[in-house]
């Protein structure tokens, strides 16, 4: 799947394992939340390489809390563009659980959601093949938002108005 991160197309260094795929000795793998929480969990955690998790739309992100320091990537999969649960997942990860690592959006995302996704804290995007050609986030971005979220390189009007600007998070 083509990967867009920090404003450009990049190679995806991660291998995303299906639940029946062996862990093997790949350096960087992601597994489903079910697999991490299931009987195979200890083996998954003992995997020598980098470990990431793919959250399905309905997964409860809170169950990741004990494992966050072990993780190098969290992928949130959007089942379809109208299902906005993944936005709350990202918000909780960034704000409440203070996740600083890579947060990736995947699934049925489209370019017009880019600002929303960035502002909720996503920093990389698995873009469906058929949407790669039209993926020009700069054309659809709105550079301003009222709220105080400083993720996403979008200026907060409230901060600007009240002189509380701070460096956006990287």
């Amino acid at each position: 799947m083509p990967l867009f991160a920090h404003g450009r197309w990049v190679e995806d260094p991660w291998r995303h394992l299906a639940d029946d795929e062996p862990l093997g000795d790949v350096a960087s793998v992601t597994v489903s939340l079910n697999r991490l929480l299931g009987p195979e969990g200890p083996a998954v955690l003992a995997h020598p390489g980098r470990l990431g998790v793919r959250l399905a739309t309905e997964d409860r992100v809170e169950s990741l809390e004990p494992f966050l320091c072990r993780l190098g990537l969290i992928v949130v999969v959007f089942a379809n563009f109208a299902d906005g649960r993944g936005f709350s997942t990202a918000r909780i990860l960034r704000r409440r659980l203070a996740w600083r690592g890579e947060l990736r959006a995947a699934g049925r995302i489209f370019v017009d959601q880019y600002s929303f996704l960035r502002r909720c804290g996503f920093d990389s995007f698995e873009v469906p093949d058929e949407r790669v050609a039209s993926w020009h986030p700069d054309n659809v971005a709105i550079p301003l938002a009222y709220r105080t979220d400083s993720e996403g390189g979008v200026a907060s009007i409230w901060r600007l108005r009240h002189n509380r600007c701070r460096e956006p998070r990287p």
Partner: peptide, 13 residues
């Protein structure tokens, strides 16, 4: 109004 306008988290309820 301002808070909810293009709210990044709550635009696909």
């Amino acid at each position: 109004r301002q808070w909810s306008s293009l709210h990044p988290e709550f635009s696909f309820l």
